[in-house]
Design a protein around this nucleic acid. Sequence first.
DNA 1: ACAGGGCGGTTAGAAGCTATCACGAACATT
DNA 2: AATGTTCGTGATAGCTTCTAACCGCCCTGT
Lengths: 219, 219
Amino acid sequence: MPEARTSTPRERYRTQVRAEIKEHAWEQIATAGASALSLNAIAKRMGMSGPALYRYFDGRDELITELIRDAYRSQADTLRAAADAGAGLAGLAHALRAWALDDPQRYLLIFGTPVPGYRAPDDVTEIAAETMAVIVGACAALPSASPSDGTADAFDAHLEDHRQWAGDDPAPSPVLHRALSFWSRLHGVLSLELAGQYTGMGFDPALLFDAELKDLLGP
Amino acid sequence: MPEARTSTPRERYRTQVRAEIKEHAWEQIATAGASALSLNAIAKRMGMSGPALYRYFDGRDELITELIRDAYRSQADTLRAAADAGAGLAGLAHALRAWALDDPQRYLLIFGTPVPGYRAPDDVTEIAAETMAVIVGACAALPSASPSDGTADAFDAHLEDHRQWAGDDPAPSPVLHRALSFWSRLHGVLSLELAGQYTGMGFDPALLFDAELKDLLGP
DNA sequence: ACAGGGCGGTTAGAAGCTATCACGAACATT
DNA sequence: AATGTTCGTGATAGCTTCTAACCGCCCTGT
Protein backbone atom coordinates (compact mmCIF):
# COMPACT_ATOMS: atom_id res chain seq x y z
CA MET A 1 0.00 0.00 0.00
CA PRO A 2 1.32 3.50 -0.84
CA GLU A 3 2.12 5.13 2.45
CA ALA A 4 3.40 8.61 1.52
CA ARG A 5 0.09 9.72 0.09
CA THR A 6 0.85 13.42 -0.23
CA SER A 7 -1.95 14.06 -2.71
CA THR A 8 -5.57 13.04 -2.67
CA PRO A 9 -7.26 11.85 -5.87
CA ARG A 10 -9.17 15.11 -5.88
CA GLU A 11 -5.97 17.13 -5.87
CA ARG A 12 -4.52 15.02 -8.63
CA TYR A 13 -7.65 15.51 -10.70
CA ARG A 14 -7.52 19.22 -10.08
CA THR A 15 -3.92 19.66 -11.14
CA GLN A 16 -4.53 17.45 -14.14
CA VAL A 17 -7.43 19.58 -15.32
CA ARG A 18 -5.46 22.76 -14.70
CA ALA A 19 -2.68 21.36 -16.85
CA GLU A 20 -5.13 20.46 -19.58
CA ILE A 21 -6.56 23.96 -19.55
CA LYS A 22 -3.11 25.44 -19.92
CA GLU A 23 -2.42 23.01 -22.74
CA HIS A 24 -5.39 24.28 -24.69
CA ALA A 25 -4.49 27.86 -23.81
CA TRP A 26 -1.00 27.47 -25.28
CA GLU A 27 -2.44 25.93 -28.38
CA GLN A 28 -4.81 28.82 -28.77
CA ILE A 29 -2.10 31.40 -28.13
CA ALA A 30 0.20 29.81 -30.67
CA THR A 31 -2.38 30.08 -33.40
CA ALA A 32 -4.18 33.33 -32.62
CA GLY A 33 -2.03 35.24 -30.16
CA ALA A 34 -2.47 35.94 -26.50
CA SER A 35 -5.00 38.70 -27.01
CA ALA A 36 -7.38 36.22 -28.62
CA LEU A 37 -7.25 33.77 -25.74
CA SER A 38 -10.82 32.88 -24.79
CA LEU A 39 -11.81 31.00 -21.66
CA ASN A 40 -15.13 30.17 -23.26
CA ALA A 41 -13.50 28.58 -26.28
CA ILE A 42 -11.18 26.53 -24.08
CA ALA A 43 -14.08 25.30 -22.00
CA LYS A 44 -16.08 24.29 -25.03
CA ARG A 45 -13.12 22.51 -26.56
CA MET A 46 -12.78 20.59 -23.31
CA GLY A 47 -16.41 19.57 -23.39
CA MET A 48 -17.57 21.68 -20.51
CA SER A 49 -19.49 24.86 -20.41
CA GLY A 50 -18.08 28.29 -19.77
CA PRO A 51 -17.94 29.20 -16.13
CA ALA A 52 -16.60 25.79 -15.09
CA LEU A 53 -13.08 27.08 -15.70
CA TYR A 54 -13.49 29.58 -12.90
CA ARG A 55 -13.19 26.66 -10.48
CA TYR A 56 -9.60 26.33 -11.67
CA PHE A 57 -8.53 29.89 -12.41
CA ASP A 58 -9.70 33.13 -10.89
CA GLY A 59 -10.12 34.52 -14.38
CA ARG A 60 -8.40 35.27 -17.63
CA ASP A 61 -5.70 37.35 -15.99
CA GLU A 62 -4.67 34.64 -13.57
CA LEU A 63 -4.49 32.10 -16.37
CA ILE A 64 -2.28 34.35 -18.44
CA THR A 65 -0.09 35.13 -15.47
CA GLU A 66 0.30 31.40 -14.92
CA LEU A 67 1.27 30.95 -18.57
CA ILE A 68 3.81 33.74 -18.24
CA ARG A 69 5.22 32.03 -15.18
CA ASP A 70 5.52 28.75 -17.06
CA ALA A 71 7.16 30.49 -19.98
CA TYR A 72 9.80 32.06 -17.74
CA ARG A 73 10.28 28.73 -16.00
CA SER A 74 10.72 26.95 -19.31
CA GLN A 75 13.24 29.51 -20.49
CA ALA A 76 15.24 29.36 -17.29
CA ASP A 77 15.26 25.55 -17.32
CA THR A 78 16.35 25.47 -20.95
CA LEU A 79 19.28 27.80 -20.41
CA ARG A 80 20.30 26.14 -17.17
CA ALA A 81 20.21 22.74 -18.80
CA ALA A 82 22.42 24.01 -21.60
CA ALA A 83 24.83 25.51 -19.12
CA ASP A 84 24.90 22.31 -17.06
CA ALA A 85 25.67 20.41 -20.25
CA GLY A 86 28.81 22.45 -20.56
CA ALA A 87 27.60 24.97 -23.11
CA GLY A 88 29.44 28.25 -23.26
CA LEU A 89 27.98 31.62 -24.17
CA ALA A 90 27.58 30.57 -27.78
CA GLY A 91 25.78 27.43 -26.72
CA LEU A 92 23.45 29.45 -24.50
CA ALA A 93 22.71 31.75 -27.41
CA HIS A 94 21.73 28.91 -29.69
CA ALA A 95 19.70 27.25 -26.93
CA LEU A 96 17.90 30.54 -26.45
CA ARG A 97 17.17 30.93 -30.14
CA ALA A 98 15.95 27.34 -30.46
CA TRP A 99 13.71 27.85 -27.46
CA ALA A 100 12.29 31.04 -28.93
CA LEU A 101 11.66 29.55 -32.36
CA ASP A 102 10.04 26.52 -30.80
CA ASP A 103 7.08 28.69 -29.82
CA PRO A 104 7.33 32.32 -30.91
CA GLN A 105 4.21 33.39 -29.09
CA ARG A 106 5.62 31.99 -25.86
CA TYR A 107 8.67 34.18 -26.30
CA LEU A 108 6.54 37.19 -27.14
CA LEU A 109 4.32 36.51 -24.14
CA ILE A 110 7.35 37.34 -22.03
CA PHE A 111 9.13 39.97 -24.09
CA GLY A 112 6.37 41.35 -26.28
CA THR A 113 4.01 44.22 -25.68
CA PRO A 114 3.12 44.51 -22.00
CA VAL A 115 -0.16 45.95 -20.82
CA PRO A 116 0.67 49.36 -19.30
CA GLY A 117 -0.46 48.70 -15.76
CA TYR A 118 0.72 45.12 -15.41
CA ARG A 119 3.29 44.26 -12.77
CA ALA A 120 4.78 40.78 -12.81
CA PRO A 121 4.54 38.85 -9.54
CA ASP A 122 7.71 38.60 -7.48
CA ASP A 123 8.29 34.92 -8.09
CA VAL A 124 8.30 35.57 -11.82
CA THR A 125 11.00 38.22 -11.57
CA GLU A 126 12.93 35.76 -9.41
CA ILE A 127 12.87 33.24 -12.25
CA ALA A 128 14.08 35.97 -14.60
CA ALA A 129 16.93 36.67 -12.18
CA GLU A 130 17.75 32.97 -12.27
CA THR A 131 18.09 33.19 -16.05
CA MET A 132 20.32 36.22 -15.77
CA ALA A 133 22.49 34.37 -13.25
CA VAL A 134 23.11 31.62 -15.79
CA ILE A 135 24.10 34.16 -18.42
CA VAL A 136 26.35 36.06 -16.03
CA GLY A 137 27.99 32.77 -15.10
CA ALA A 138 28.76 31.99 -18.71
CA CYS A 139 30.10 35.50 -19.24
CA ALA A 140 32.39 35.16 -16.25
CA ALA A 141 33.83 31.97 -17.71
CA LEU A 142 34.89 33.83 -20.84
CA PRO A 143 38.57 34.63 -21.41
CA SER A 144 38.31 38.30 -20.56
CA ALA A 145 36.06 41.23 -21.10
CA SER A 146 37.57 44.52 -22.20
CA PRO A 147 41.06 43.03 -22.30
CA SER A 148 43.88 45.36 -23.15
CA ASP A 149 41.69 48.40 -23.64
CA GLY A 150 42.53 50.13 -20.41
CA THR A 151 39.87 52.89 -20.47
CA ALA A 152 37.08 51.80 -18.21
CA ASP A 153 33.71 52.07 -19.89
CA ALA A 154 31.33 54.71 -18.54
CA PHE A 155 28.55 52.17 -18.26
CA ASP A 156 30.86 49.75 -16.45
CA ALA A 157 31.45 52.36 -13.80
CA HIS A 158 27.73 52.97 -13.53
CA LEU A 159 27.11 49.25 -13.20
CA GLU A 160 29.52 49.09 -10.29
CA ASP A 161 26.95 51.03 -8.32
CA HIS A 162 23.97 49.06 -9.63
CA ARG A 163 24.84 45.42 -9.42
CA GLN A 164 22.25 44.19 -6.95
CA TRP A 165 20.28 42.51 -9.75
CA ALA A 166 23.22 40.10 -10.11
CA GLY A 167 22.68 38.93 -6.57
CA ASP A 168 25.88 38.12 -4.73
CA ASP A 169 27.76 37.26 -7.89
CA PRO A 170 31.25 38.74 -7.48
CA ALA A 171 31.79 39.13 -11.21
CA PRO A 172 33.45 42.42 -12.16
CA SER A 173 31.22 44.95 -13.81
CA PRO A 174 32.55 44.40 -17.36
CA VAL A 175 31.23 40.87 -17.03
CA LEU A 176 27.82 42.17 -16.01
CA HIS A 177 27.98 44.57 -18.90
CA ARG A 178 28.68 41.71 -21.26
CA ALA A 179 25.74 39.78 -19.85
CA LEU A 180 23.38 42.70 -20.39
CA SER A 181 24.74 43.19 -23.88
CA PHE A 182 24.35 39.51 -24.64
CA TRP A 183 20.77 39.55 -23.53
CA SER A 184 19.81 42.80 -25.23
CA ARG A 185 21.53 42.14 -28.53
CA LEU A 186 20.25 38.64 -29.01
CA HIS A 187 16.80 39.76 -28.00
CA GLY A 188 17.06 42.46 -30.63
CA VAL A 189 17.57 40.14 -33.57
CA LEU A 190 15.37 37.44 -32.10
CA SER A 191 12.37 39.63 -31.43
CA LEU A 192 12.59 41.31 -34.82
CA GLU A 193 12.75 37.89 -36.43
CA LEU A 194 9.81 36.55 -34.43
CA ALA A 195 7.78 39.66 -35.08
CA GLY A 196 8.34 39.13 -38.77
CA GLN A 197 10.14 42.42 -39.31
CA TYR A 198 12.80 40.74 -41.41
CA THR A 199 10.35 38.95 -43.67
CA GLY A 200 10.42 40.38 -47.13
CA MET A 201 14.04 41.38 -46.73
CA GLY A 202 15.16 38.03 -48.01
CA PHE A 203 18.22 37.33 -45.90
CA ASP A 204 18.46 34.52 -43.38
CA PRO A 205 17.87 35.77 -39.82
CA ALA A 206 19.91 32.86 -38.47
CA LEU A 207 23.00 34.29 -40.13
CA LEU A 208 22.40 37.73 -38.69
CA PHE A 209 21.95 36.12 -35.31
CA ASP A 210 25.24 34.29 -35.68
CA ALA A 211 26.97 37.43 -36.88
CA GLU A 212 25.77 39.34 -33.84
CA LEU A 213 26.82 36.50 -31.59
CA LYS A 214 30.26 36.31 -33.15
CA ASP A 215 30.79 40.03 -32.77
CA LEU A 216 29.60 39.74 -29.20
CA LEU A 217 32.12 37.01 -28.37
CA GLY A 218 35.05 38.37 -30.34
CA PRO A 219 37.40 40.93 -28.89
CA MET B 1 -12.84 83.82 -53.80
CA PRO B 2 -10.89 80.58 -53.37
CA GLU B 3 -10.74 78.94 -56.75
CA ALA B 4 -8.81 75.66 -56.15
CA ARG B 5 -11.53 74.07 -54.00
CA THR B 6 -10.16 70.54 -53.93
CA SER B 7 -12.24 69.53 -50.88
CA THR B 8 -15.88 69.99 -50.05
CA PRO B 9 -16.93 70.98 -46.51
CA ARG B 10 -18.22 67.45 -46.06
CA GLU B 11 -14.88 65.96 -46.92
CA ARG B 12 -13.14 68.33 -44.55
CA TYR B 13 -15.57 67.41 -41.78
CA ARG B 14 -15.04 63.75 -42.48
CA THR B 15 -11.26 63.89 -42.28
CA GLN B 16 -11.53 66.04 -39.19
CA VAL B 17 -13.72 63.49 -37.43
CA ARG B 18 -11.42 60.67 -38.52
CA ALA B 19 -8.50 62.55 -37.01
CA GLU B 20 -10.40 63.10 -33.81
CA ILE B 21 -11.22 59.40 -33.57
CA LYS B 22 -7.55 58.53 -34.01
CA GLU B 23 -6.67 61.10 -31.39
CA HIS B 24 -8.87 59.38 -28.84
CA ALA B 25 -7.60 56.00 -29.96
CA TRP B 26 -3.99 56.99 -29.31
CA GLU B 27 -4.94 58.32 -25.92
CA GLN B 28 -6.65 55.08 -25.07
CA ILE B 29 -3.76 52.98 -26.36
CA ALA B 30 -1.24 54.98 -24.37
CA THR B 31 -3.07 54.32 -21.12
CA ALA B 32 -4.44 50.82 -21.57
CA GLY B 33 -2.59 49.25 -24.47
CA ALA B 34 -3.71 48.45 -27.97
CA SER B 35 -5.57 45.30 -26.98
CA ALA B 36 -7.91 47.36 -24.83
CA LEU B 37 -8.84 49.76 -27.60
CA SER B 38 -12.63 50.03 -27.72
CA LEU B 39 -14.60 51.67 -30.50
CA ASN B 40 -17.56 51.94 -28.18
CA ALA B 41 -15.58 53.82 -25.57
CA ILE B 42 -14.19 56.19 -28.17
CA ALA B 43 -17.66 56.90 -29.54
CA LYS B 44 -19.08 57.60 -26.11
CA ARG B 45 -16.18 59.87 -25.26
CA MET B 46 -16.92 61.75 -28.48
CA GLY B 47 -20.57 62.16 -27.55
CA MET B 48 -21.97 59.86 -30.17
CA SER B 49 -23.32 56.40 -29.91
CA GLY B 50 -21.54 53.22 -30.92
CA PRO B 51 -22.11 52.33 -34.52
CA ALA B 52 -21.55 55.88 -35.73
CA LEU B 53 -17.83 55.21 -35.93
CA TYR B 54 -18.43 52.63 -38.62
CA ARG B 55 -19.14 55.51 -40.97
CA TYR B 56 -15.49 56.46 -40.61
CA PHE B 57 -13.72 53.15 -40.20
CA ASP B 58 -14.64 49.73 -41.48
CA GLY B 59 -14.01 48.35 -38.02
CA ARG B 60 -11.51 47.95 -35.25
CA ASP B 61 -8.94 46.30 -37.50
CA GLU B 62 -8.96 49.10 -40.04
CA LEU B 63 -8.58 51.70 -37.30
CA ILE B 64 -5.60 49.87 -35.81
CA THR B 65 -4.03 49.42 -39.22
CA GLU B 66 -4.40 53.14 -39.76
CA LEU B 67 -2.73 53.83 -36.42
CA ILE B 68 0.10 51.49 -37.36
CA ARG B 69 0.51 53.34 -40.62
CA ASP B 70 0.67 56.67 -38.81
CA ALA B 71 3.20 55.27 -36.37
CA TYR B 72 5.49 54.13 -39.16
CA ARG B 73 5.03 57.46 -40.89
CA SER B 74 5.88 59.34 -37.72
CA GLN B 75 8.99 57.25 -37.18
CA ALA B 76 10.18 57.66 -40.75
CA ASP B 77 9.59 61.41 -40.65
CA THR B 78 11.43 61.75 -37.36
CA LEU B 79 14.50 59.91 -38.59
CA ARG B 80 14.52 61.65 -41.94
CA ALA B 81 14.22 65.03 -40.25
CA ALA B 82 17.17 64.17 -38.04
CA ALA B 83 19.19 63.05 -41.02
CA ASP B 84 18.29 66.16 -42.99
CA ALA B 85 19.41 68.24 -40.03
CA GLY B 86 22.84 66.72 -40.45
CA ALA B 87 22.66 64.10 -37.74
CA GLY B 88 25.01 61.16 -38.06
CA LEU B 89 24.36 57.63 -36.93
CA ALA B 90 24.59 58.65 -33.28
CA GLY B 91 22.11 61.44 -33.88
CA LEU B 92 19.72 59.04 -35.55
CA ALA B 93 20.03 56.70 -32.59
CA HIS B 94 19.13 59.38 -30.11
CA ALA B 95 16.29 60.62 -32.29
CA LEU B 96 14.99 57.08 -32.43
CA ARG B 97 15.16 56.65 -28.70
CA ALA B 98 13.49 59.98 -28.04
CA TRP B 99 10.74 59.08 -30.48
CA ALA B 100 10.22 55.74 -28.77
CA LEU B 101 10.13 57.15 -25.26
CA ASP B 102 7.73 59.85 -26.37
CA ASP B 103 5.02 57.21 -26.72
CA PRO B 104 6.10 53.70 -25.77
CA GLN B 105 2.88 52.09 -26.87
CA ARG B 106 3.27 53.65 -30.32
CA TYR B 107 6.67 52.01 -30.61
CA LEU B 108 5.29 48.70 -29.37
CA LEU B 109 2.40 48.94 -31.78
CA ILE B 110 4.98 48.58 -34.53
CA PHE B 111 7.58 46.34 -32.96
CA GLY B 112 5.64 44.54 -30.25
CA THR B 113 3.74 41.31 -30.37
CA PRO B 114 2.11 40.81 -33.76
CA VAL B 115 -1.06 38.81 -34.22
CA PRO B 116 -0.03 35.56 -35.96
CA GLY B 117 -2.01 35.95 -39.14
CA TYR B 118 -1.57 39.68 -39.65
CA ARG B 119 0.17 40.91 -42.78
CA ALA B 120 1.02 44.58 -43.00
CA PRO B 121 -0.27 46.40 -46.11
CA ASP B 122 2.28 47.11 -48.80
CA ASP B 123 2.38 50.86 -48.30
CA VAL B 124 3.32 50.30 -44.66
CA THR B 125 6.29 48.13 -45.55
CA GLU B 126 7.27 50.82 -48.03
CA ILE B 127 7.43 53.35 -45.22
CA ALA B 128 9.57 50.91 -43.25
CA ALA B 129 11.88 50.63 -46.25
CA GLU B 130 12.10 54.42 -46.28
CA THR B 131 13.29 54.33 -42.68
CA MET B 132 15.87 51.70 -43.50
CA ALA B 133 17.09 53.82 -46.39
CA VAL B 134 17.81 56.69 -44.01
CA ILE B 135 19.76 54.39 -41.71
CA VAL B 136 21.70 52.85 -44.57
CA GLY B 137 22.53 56.32 -45.78
CA ALA B 138 23.94 57.29 -42.40
CA CYS B 139 25.93 54.06 -42.26
CA ALA B 140 27.41 54.71 -45.68
CA ALA B 141 28.60 58.12 -44.52
CA LEU B 142 30.62 56.52 -41.73
CA PRO B 143 34.44 56.37 -42.02
CA SER B 144 34.62 52.70 -42.88
CA ALA B 145 33.04 49.44 -41.91
CA SER B 146 35.28 46.43 -41.21
CA PRO B 147 38.42 48.44 -41.90
CA SER B 148 41.68 46.58 -41.76
CA ASP B 149 40.14 43.26 -40.82
CA GLY B 150 40.50 41.60 -44.21
CA THR B 151 38.43 38.47 -43.57
CA ALA B 152 35.06 39.09 -45.14
CA ASP B 153 32.25 38.31 -42.75
CA ALA B 154 30.10 35.28 -43.60
CA PHE B 155 26.98 37.34 -43.20
CA ASP B 156 28.40 40.07 -45.43
CA ALA B 157 28.79 37.52 -48.20
CA HIS B 158 25.26 36.33 -47.66
CA LEU B 159 23.99 39.89 -47.77
CA GLU B 160 25.63 40.38 -51.13
CA ASP B 161 23.02 38.01 -52.51
CA HIS B 162 20.13 39.52 -50.55
CA ARG B 163 20.33 43.24 -50.87
CA GLN B 164 17.09 43.97 -52.70
CA TRP B 165 15.56 45.37 -49.48
CA ALA B 166 18.05 48.23 -49.74
CA GLY B 167 16.56 49.21 -53.06
CA ASP B 168 19.10 50.51 -55.54
CA ASP B 169 21.46 51.72 -52.85
CA PRO B 170 24.95 50.83 -54.06
CA ALA B 171 26.37 50.61 -50.54
CA PRO B 172 28.73 47.65 -50.04
CA SER B 173 27.37 44.81 -47.99
CA PRO B 174 29.32 45.64 -44.82
CA VAL B 175 27.41 48.91 -44.77
CA LEU B 176 24.12 47.05 -45.06
CA HIS B 177 25.33 44.76 -42.31
CA ARG B 178 26.02 47.71 -40.10
CA ALA B 179 22.58 49.14 -40.79
CA LEU B 180 20.92 45.88 -39.80
CA SER B 181 23.08 45.68 -36.72
CA PHE B 182 22.26 49.26 -35.80
CA TRP B 183 18.58 48.61 -36.10
CA SER B 184 18.57 45.27 -34.28
CA ARG B 185 20.84 46.28 -31.44
CA LEU B 186 19.15 49.53 -30.63
CA HIS B 187 15.79 47.84 -30.87
CA GLY B 188 17.08 45.26 -28.40
CA VAL B 189 17.84 47.70 -25.62
CA LEU B 190 14.96 49.96 -26.50
CA SER B 191 12.27 47.30 -26.54
CA LEU B 192 13.51 45.76 -23.31
CA GLU B 193 13.47 49.17 -21.70
CA LEU B 194 9.98 49.99 -22.98
CA ALA B 195 8.68 46.60 -21.95
CA GLY B 196 9.96 47.28 -18.47
CA GLN B 197 12.33 44.34 -18.42
CA TYR B 198 15.08 46.46 -16.91
CA THR B 199 12.94 47.87 -14.14
CA GLY B 200 14.00 46.55 -10.81
CA MET B 201 17.57 46.14 -12.02
CA GLY B 202 18.39 49.64 -10.94
CA PHE B 203 20.73 50.79 -13.68
CA ASP B 204 19.96 53.56 -16.13
CA PRO B 205 18.79 52.17 -19.51
CA ALA B 206 19.99 55.34 -21.23
CA LEU B 207 23.56 54.48 -20.31
CA LEU B 208 23.23 50.96 -21.64
CA PHE B 209 21.78 52.42 -24.81
CA ASP B 210 24.73 54.77 -25.15
CA ALA B 211 27.18 51.96 -24.44
CA GLU B 212 25.64 49.83 -27.17
CA LEU B 213 25.69 52.76 -29.54
CA LYS B 214 29.31 53.54 -28.77
CA ASP B 215 30.34 49.94 -29.33
CA LEU B 216 28.37 49.97 -32.54
CA LEU B 217 30.13 53.07 -33.84
CA GLY B 218 33.58 52.19 -32.61
CA PRO B 219 35.98 50.08 -34.67
C1' DA C 1 -22.81 2.66 7.75
C1' DC C 2 -24.57 6.78 7.02
C1' DA C 3 -25.05 11.85 7.24
C1' DG C 4 -22.74 16.02 6.10
C1' DG C 5 -19.45 19.23 3.73
C1' DG C 6 -16.70 20.46 0.14
C1' DC C 7 -16.00 20.40 -4.59
C1' DG C 8 -17.18 20.24 -9.65
C1' DG C 9 -20.40 21.24 -12.93
C1' DT C 10 -24.52 23.24 -14.66
C1' DT C 11 -27.85 27.12 -16.26
C1' DA C 12 -29.17 31.96 -15.91
C1' DG C 13 -27.93 36.48 -16.14
C1' DA C 14 -25.46 41.19 -16.05
C1' DA C 15 -22.34 44.06 -18.45
C1' DG C 16 -19.23 44.82 -22.10
C1' DC C 17 -17.57 44.41 -26.80
C1' DT C 18 -17.82 44.22 -32.33
C1' DA C 19 -20.55 44.59 -36.10
C1' DT C 20 -24.92 44.79 -39.13
C1' DC C 21 -29.31 46.54 -40.19
C1' DA C 22 -33.07 49.72 -40.91
C1' DC C 23 -34.73 54.04 -40.22
C1' DG C 24 -34.87 59.27 -39.88
C1' DA C 25 -32.90 63.61 -40.47
C1' DA C 26 -29.77 66.86 -42.31
C1' DC C 27 -27.16 68.20 -45.94
C1' DA C 28 -25.71 68.92 -50.99
C1' DT C 29 -26.82 68.81 -55.70
C1' DT C 30 -29.48 69.01 -59.69
C1' DA D 1 -38.10 72.58 -55.09
C1' DA D 2 -37.11 67.55 -55.67
C1' DT D 3 -33.71 64.18 -55.40
C1' DG D 4 -29.92 61.68 -53.60
C1' DT D 5 -25.99 61.08 -50.57
C1' DT D 6 -24.26 61.10 -46.02
C1' DC D 7 -24.53 61.05 -40.91
C1' DG D 8 -26.31 59.51 -36.74
C1' DT D 9 -29.63 56.81 -34.25
C1' DG D 10 -31.78 52.62 -31.89
C1' DA D 11 -32.44 47.66 -32.30
C1' DT D 12 -30.40 43.30 -32.70
C1' DA D 13 -27.23 39.19 -33.05
C1' DG D 14 -23.34 37.05 -31.28
C1' DC D 15 -19.33 37.05 -28.92
C1' DT D 16 -16.71 37.82 -24.54
C1' DT D 17 -15.69 37.80 -19.08
C1' DC D 18 -17.47 36.97 -14.86
C1' DT D 19 -21.11 36.40 -10.77
C1' DA D 20 -24.82 34.01 -8.70
C1' DA D 21 -27.71 30.29 -7.57
C1' DC D 22 -28.45 25.55 -7.69
C1' DC D 23 -27.74 20.42 -8.09
C1' DG D 24 -25.22 16.17 -7.44
C1' DC D 25 -21.36 13.37 -6.41
C1' DC D 26 -17.45 11.90 -3.83
C1' DC D 27 -15.06 11.81 0.34
C1' DT D 28 -14.74 11.96 4.99
C1' DG D 29 -15.83 11.89 10.02
C1' DT D 30 -18.50 10.09 13.55
